[in-house]
Design a protein around this nucleic acid. Structure first.
Lengths: 342, 342
DNA sequence: TTGAAAGCGCTACCAG
DNA sequence: CTGGTAGCGCTTTCAA
């Protein structure tokens, strides 16, 4: 066997016309039982599968799809964004949703090339991934409308929040509660994908501290690989400090969850003896009662999707609307520090 | 404007040949700048978008996609399954992943028809949704290979676990811990999608109790609408019982999370004064330390996907392999009951 | 009931 | 650099 069999092959081998073969495939009405079976046999023998492209073209049912490309590294936050994307896609009937994922930065370029070549999607929503100028041009010439959901500075249409401001807001909240010894726990920067999330949230943290006239000891800054377990370990370090922090600002909710775990193990009461604030407001946070900074995850998916759809449908040109401001969601992992702590 | 413009339209209006117009669209190499701009203008004026079907057909790049249809109602568990599906799709290069979702049982038929008509996917993984015989036939004749991920009894290839056994295992675990007053909290059955999950898990619960020679008072059985808040309310009812249960078996982790919340509000210590076991083992459960019964969510996605891919590629015929047995994942919401409790 | 033939919209090759 | 032309694989009249 040399190439994929086509309807012609089937028809010839079964000794019938193309038209008949086609009828057999589509419901088999108006075909003599005998004939049908003959054709069916050939189909099965060859493992024939009709070409959806040809089918579509002939039937005049166009495929309209928007793609979503995610980095598996930011998984938990992605889920919430996807929900927003899905919401608006589903409401449009005409569009399908194609999901791509990218496991490592090296494979990003490859993946984008693939997407451009496949011509499956008319638009692509890139989540938390950095697309180079070259790649943008490549996609554009393939007719793919692009929008990114990301907080990193980038060119092209983008929806996201200001991480530095987010870091500032989180830290200031802790400050207002009366905390003075506030630690920062985040990814080591720059991270493998070249993202500056951690650095930016850290900057906001530093700024807030400075504005409050406080200086931070470097032992209060824990930077490491992203992950719950890693965060747990870093938090344990923080808790073993002679003059340990009364509050921790974790760069993401996942890391904050790790901190919670560490506190539990160290028998440190949260929030009485240790306040913890996260960032993102992923779904799990509401379950554990984590105080965090919301960056309007599902809203970001919704906005980005509405934007690309708008572009595809010809209305709309400028930039996507911006997201609501970042905001502290107070739950039960934060409170004022104990008096004794001076 | 009567119908979608085609390349021919563009070419005519721009006063150039089809070939040239095509070149402009695909990178625009070997085209005089002037010509290109002329063509571009027409394209923009008409809001022209190339037909991906035609493009594909001509370029001979076939679209191979497997679809996933989910019911938004079972969302949290779905996320984990999706991860498994995604894993194996990504490893295959050749296939894309198309996501469909279905918001209400009434729309299921409609959605399936849509999927059959679109001819986008060669295979469909239906998650926690019940597909009728008619629909199966319809999909089959559209050439769509089907597999369901579900615990409900159904025809056709299916991957899932035995809910009744799951309920039995969960309850027996509580029994072995020494509990005697064990409540069941689940969805009212039958539920809107016609699922029997709650009923089956409940049966396992009853059976385990019987096997232990215990009878259950009906006040220990709380059935209601699915959801965390609803479960929280039902749990509150349970906690206000004169002779309240020492343990609760919640039909899903989401409901167990609601119970946790209720216990916290009622100042009941978990697990010392109340053991809680859930079902599913969604990601959030690991974060809160919920004891639960795992049904191998991501594994189910993986198995189902490998199965359909196997069928599509011609190897493999029978049924999908079965999942590992259900299993209690012990975390920190369960322990033996207090002595005083008789 | 069946075969032949005419497209579907686009790309790619080939002269010019 | 550009216009014509031949398909890509399938569905769908239209006669037979």
């Amino acid at each position: 066997m040399e190439r994929k069999p086509t309807l012609d092959d089937i028809a010839h081998l079964a000794g019938v016309g193309k038209g008949t073969a086609s009828r057999v495939i589509n419901g088999g009405t108006h075909v003599r039982k005998e004939t049908r079976e003959k054709v069916m046999k050939v189909i099965n023998d060859l493992g024939y599968r009709p070409s959806s492209a040809a089918r579509r073209l002939s039937r005049r049912v166009p495929l309209r799809s928007v793609g979503v490309l995610e980095s598996v590294l930011t998984a938990p936050a992605f889920v919430d964004r996807l929900r927003g994307i899905q919401d608006v896609i589903e409401s449009k009937e005409k569009f399908e949703l194609t999901l791509y994922s990218c496991t490592s930065p090296e494979r990003l370029k490859q993946k984008l090339d693939h997407i451009a070549d496949m011509h499956t999607v008319e638009a692509l929503i890139v989540v938390d991934l950095d697309v180079s100028e070259d790649q943008r041009a490549r996609l554009a010439s393939a007719g793919v409308t692009l929008v990114s959901i990301s907080n990193a500075a980038g060119s092209g249409p983008q929806v996201g929040i200001d991480d530095e401001r987010g870091g500032y807001v989180a830290t200031r909240y802790l400050l207002e509660l009366g905390h003075k010894r506030i630690a920062y726990l985040g990814d080591v920067f720059p991270d493998p994908f070249g993202f500056k999330t951690s650095r930016n949230r850290y900057r906001g943290y530093v700024q807030a501290l400075e504005d409050a006239g406080l200086s931070i000891g470097q032992e209060y800054v824990q930077l490491g690989k992203h992950g719950k377990a890693e965060a747990q370990a870093m938090c344990a370090t923080l808790l073993s400090l002679p003059d340990r922090p009364t509050a921790i600002f974790a760069m993401t909710d996942i890391q904050a969850l790790g901190c919670l775990e560490a506190a539990r193990e160290a028998k440190v009461n949260v929030p009485q003896d240790l306040s913890i604030i996260g960032f993102d407001d992923i779904e799990a946070s509401s379950h554990v009662g984590l105080t965090t900074v919301t960056q309007h995850l599902s809203e970001s998916g919704r906005v980005a999707t509405q934007y690309v759809l708008g572009v595809l449908e010809g209305r709309r040109t400028g930039d996507p609307p911006s997201l609501p401001d970042v905001e502290v969601v107070v739950r039960r992992t934060t409170c004022p520090p104990r008096e004794e702590g001076q």
